[in-house]
Nucleic acid binder design. Sequence first.
DNA 1: CCTGGAGTCTGCCCTCGGGGACGAGTCAAG
DNA 2: CTTGACTCGTCCCCGAGGGCAGACTCCAGG
Lengths: 269, 269
Amino acid sequence: MDELMPIGRFSRLCWLSIKALRVYDDQGLLHPAHVDPDSGYRYYTPDQAATARVIATLRTLDMPLASIREVLAEPDPDRVRDLLDRYRMVLEQRIDRHRHMLNRVETFIRKGAVMAYEITTRDTAPTEVLGTTYPSSVDSLPQTSAVAYHRVYAAIAEAGGRPAGPPRMVYLELADDTWTIEACVPVMGLSQAPDGFSLHQVRGGLAAVTRHVGPYDELGLAYREVEAWIEAQGLTSNGAPYDVYLNDPSEVGDPAKLETEIVWPVTRS
Amino acid sequence: MDELMPIGRFSRLCWLSIKALRVYDDQGLLHPAHVDPDSGYRYYTPDQAATARVIATLRTLDMPLASIREVLAEPDPDRVRDLLDRYRMVLEQRIDRHRHMLNRVETFIRKGAVMAYEITTRDTAPTEVLGTTYPSSVDSLPQTSAVAYHRVYAAIAEAGGRPAGPPRMVYLELADDTWTIEACVPVMGLSQAPDGFSLHQVRGGLAAVTRHVGPYDELGLAYREVEAWIEAQGLTSNGAPYDVYLNDPSEVGDPAKLETEIVWPVTRS
DNA sequence: CCTGGAGTCTGCCCTCGGGGACGAGTCAAG
DNA sequence: CTTGACTCGTCCCCGAGGGCAGACTCCAGG
């Protein structure tokens, strides 16, 4: 039982490469039962194969060595379950991400090109809007904006006005991690802004405009497209860009059918 | 339009890091329109942002740079579509793999441990089997074995015998890439093997036995478990191991409910 | 013309989990 | 004792950049 075997035999026993076993020794996942102090030879006992198998199994699940080390160091089965459950969530997110990528590749295949927006210039009319300005991290934008629009619509109704067009979002300032945005809605019949909101006129004028059909998280790419088009046309950006949500996510259902107009005010130079 | 801009401005325009742009230059994905031969400064034109955006888009899909280079070099839209379609299949396989890993993690969570087989020794009875021996790569094993069992059952019926137990697979020789296996079925009422098959008696005797519940591709881990257990018990392997398929995949449906017995002949040393 | 600050260059090290090769030392059987 | 198999540590490699260091370059203001 306490028979010691060198690394080669052990590697054949547990189906791990010698190289991998050495790495697991270095990383503290599986130290040999005995290391000859003179030669440095590693010697393992047969029952260490149990640990080796756990490592091998978890590695086939792509679990990082650091996480495996935690699992091995945890004697409480319930907490092992928690660790595995945490990794399960990691895997689920990864699948979601990949599924999402798959959708986008399929979109590109349908379109026959990686990306093709028709961008034009248009003269936009001045519009009175009620909105609320706030900072948001890029990741939490969907959540925060849902709340914000809800509040804006409620405020319009309470103040006795009525919406005069689809909602829009203005991108006022884009620091790397946190954006300052305004969620606003064109409005009629209001003379004064409710507390915590701002009522103001959006200056009209020339703008580069395009329409994006698809999920909102592809909007970033569309913006870059417009930005580059403006530059290539020799135009000059003139104010914060905004997008107009032409249909309602809660009614449409399928994100691939969401329609958004992107408007970027410009001047001819 | 043919205005040249240095890398920093271009990087802000197309939302790619300077470092990434330099890599794309080195890798031949996007060479700057002009490189100053004295200073080495890279200068880009605004319309190069189109290519940059394609790269950025495909990178968000995790496509490797080499594949992106192919896409960019391909002028024919139909062939671009083919390339994207090929990548779509890669993504689909990746999702399948991850979904599969997810299933296994969930199994482990349910079991409360990473792996726990009950392994025992048992005296096995000699059995007469009809089988066919062939080499197969590890990957194509499911396909080849399905065909092989089909042929064996047909041969038994045609020769006038009848099956005397669930089918089994014997692992005769395991080279790294190609295994030599025998697909066989216990049989009664046959005196002579049909052409291309072998009729022989499986020697009984002591064996280490365990039962695996779950998809067949987890069998490898179960085998390692048994192998290590044999070693740890101080027993000696004595002949080719085999597994017995206790229920039928075509009837069970859910791979998580497949039951397989693993039998490994041993002797006490 | 000079200077300072911002921009850019190349080159090196780091990631993560090992695979492959190299030169030197070690073990065990004959 | 020899020989062949085994094992040791070390270095380089994979992909797609991130981060840093040190040197060079550009441009605007004085």
